[in-house]
Measured scan of single mutants.
Amino acid sequence: KKSYVLIKVKNPKTKETHTIVVPEENLEEVLKALASQPNVKVVDIERFP
């Protein structure tokens, strides 16, 4: 059974918020990819039960 993680990201320029759902096993690479985006800020990470 896969567990999923909900990542909320915000664009500081446009103030838009997006929610991305990723499998927990991919969380680290997704966070690394997001960290390299200049106008993306991770605001929240939630685990799915």
Rank of each mutant, 00 (worst) to 15 (best):
V40F: 12
A35T: 08
N39I: 03
I45L: 04
P12Q: 15
K2M: 08
K15C: 12
V30M: 10
K32C: 08
H18C: 13
I20E: 01
E24A: 07
T19A: 06
N11T: 04
V21K: 09
K2N: 07
I45A: 02
F48L: 12
K15P: 03
V9C: 05
E29V: 08
N26F: 14
I7A: 00
E46W: 06
N39P: 02
V42P: 01
K15H: 12
T17Q: 09
H18Q: 06
E16Y: 07
K1W: 04
V42Y: 02
R47C: 11
P38H: 10
N11F: 10
Y4M: 11
N26G: 06
V21W: 14
K2Q: 09
V9Y: 11
D44C: 12
H18L: 11
Q37F: 12
N39K: 04
L31N: 00
K41M: 14
N11H: 06
V21P: 02
N39T: 05
S36F: 08
K10G: 05
D44K: 11
V43S: 03
K1S: 10
V30G: 01
K13P: 02
I7H: 00
Y4V: 07
K10A: 12
K2G: 14
K10V: 15
H18K: 09
N11G: 04
V43Y: 03
H18P: 00
K13N: 10
I7N: 00
S36H: 07
V21A: 05
N26S: 10
N11W: 10
E29T: 07
L27T: 02
S3F: 14
S3Q: 11
V40Y: 11
S36C: 11
K10W: 15
P23M: 13
P12N: 15
E28M: 09
N26E: 11
E24C: 09
Y4E: 04
V22C: 09
V42W: 02
E16V: 12
V21R: 08
V5K: 01
Y4D: 04
I20N: 00
I7L: 04
V43P: 01
N11S: 04
I45H: 02
V21F: 10
V43C: 05
K10E: 15
P38E: 09
S36Y: 06
S36L: 12
I20A: 01
D44V: 12
K41H: 13
P49I: 08
R47M: 07
E25Q: 06
K15Y: 05
E25P: 03
K1P: 09
E16L: 11
K41C: 15
H18E: 04
I20W: 08
K8R: 11
T14I: 02
I7T: 00
H18A: 06
L6A: 14
P38L: 07
L27R: 01
L6G: 13
E25F: 04
E24S: 06
Y4R: 04
D44Y: 14
P23C: 14
Q37V: 09
V40I: 10
A33W: 14
V42Q: 01
V30P: 00
T19L: 11
V30Y: 06
E25K: 05
P49T: 07
V22I: 09
F48M: 11
L6W: 10
V5R: 01
I20R: 02
K41S: 09
I7S: 00
V5Q: 01
R47P: 11
K13Y: 12
E29K: 08
K41L: 14
V40D: 02
T19G: 04
R47T: 06
E16D: 07
V21M: 14
E46K: 12
V30C: 07
A33K: 10
I7E: 00
S3C: 11
N11E: 02
A33R: 11
S3L: 12
L31R: 01
V43H: 03
K8M: 11
P12A: 15
S3H: 15
K8E: 05
V5D: 01
N39V: 03
L27V: 05
R47S: 07
S3T: 11
D44F: 15
L6F: 10
K1G: 11
E28C: 13
E24I: 10
K10T: 14
L31H: 00
P49H: 11
Y4S: 03
H18S: 08
K13C: 09
L27W: 03
N11K: 03
V21H: 03
